[in-house]
Amino acid sequence: MGDRKLSLKKLFEYYDQVLSLPHRAEVARELRDEDDLFMLLCYSEMLGIPNPAFYYTLELYPYILEKFHEWHLRMGLEKSPLTGIRCC
């Protein structure tokens, strides 16, 4: 009985992977776009765009600082647009 449950679970996992395989790139792109939007919202005050949640996003800077370099390169900026943050 235990082997049957295990094999049924593996079958469901395989079925899920087969269904999601064609959409992996699309899902990854959507997640990256959401992440880019989040980074823009977090750093918008420093870029001169008013952000009403600036006080709350301030606490997140140490955690997202590592991703900042990849983000500004994806946005087409060769160097960091922020004077306070030098990553290049």
Rank of each mutant, 00 (worst) to 15 (best):
V27A: 10
E30L: 07
D36A: 03
D36K: 04
C42E: 05
L31N: 12
P50I: 07
Y43M: 06
L41C: 05
F54L: 14
C42M: 07
E45G: 06
L40H: 12
N51K: 04
L47S: 10
D35K: 10
A28I: 02
A28L: 05
C42Y: 00
R29N: 11
L31P: 00
Y55N: 15
L31Y: 06
E34K: 01
L37C: 07
L40C: 12
R24C: 04
R24V: 10
D36C: 06
S44F: 02
L40P: 06
L41T: 04
A25S: 14
E26F: 09
M46S: 09
L40T: 12
M46E: 13
N51R: 06
E45A: 08
R24Y: 07
M39C: 01
N51H: 06
E26Y: 09
Y55E: 15
L47H: 06
S44R: 02
S44V: 03
L40Y: 14
D36L: 03
L37S: 04
M39W: 00
R29S: 11
L40V: 09
L40K: 12
C42H: 03
R32P: 03
E34G: 00
Y55H: 15
A53F: 13
V27G: 01
M39I: 00
N51S: 09
I49Q: 13
E45K: 04
R24N: 08
C42W: 02
Y43I: 00
G48H: 03
E30P: 01
A28E: 11
Y43S: 01
M39P: 00
N51P: 05
F54G: 14
I49H: 10
Y56C: 12
E26I: 10
S44M: 02
R24F: 04
M46Q: 11
A53M: 13
D36E: 11
A28N: 10
A25Q: 14
L47N: 05
E26W: 07
M46N: 10
A53H: 14
P50W: 10
V27S: 07
R24A: 12
E34C: 01
R29K: 12
P52E: 12
L40M: 13
L37V: 01
C42S: 05
Y43P: 00
R29M: 09
D36N: 12
R29C: 06
E30I: 05
D35R: 11
A28F: 02
M46V: 04
M46Y: 09
L37G: 06
Y55D: 15
G48E: 05
M39R: 00
E26S: 12
D33S: 08
L41D: 08
N51G: 05
G48L: 04
P52D: 13
L31E: 14
A25P: 08
I49D: 10
D33H: 08
V27C: 03
R32I: 07
D35A: 09
I49N: 11
D33I: 05
F54H: 15
E34V: 00
R29P: 04
E34H: 01
V27M: 07
M39L: 06
D36P: 02
Y56R: 15
V27N: 08
Y56T: 15
I49Y: 14
E34S: 01
R24D: 09
M46C: 07
Y56H: 13
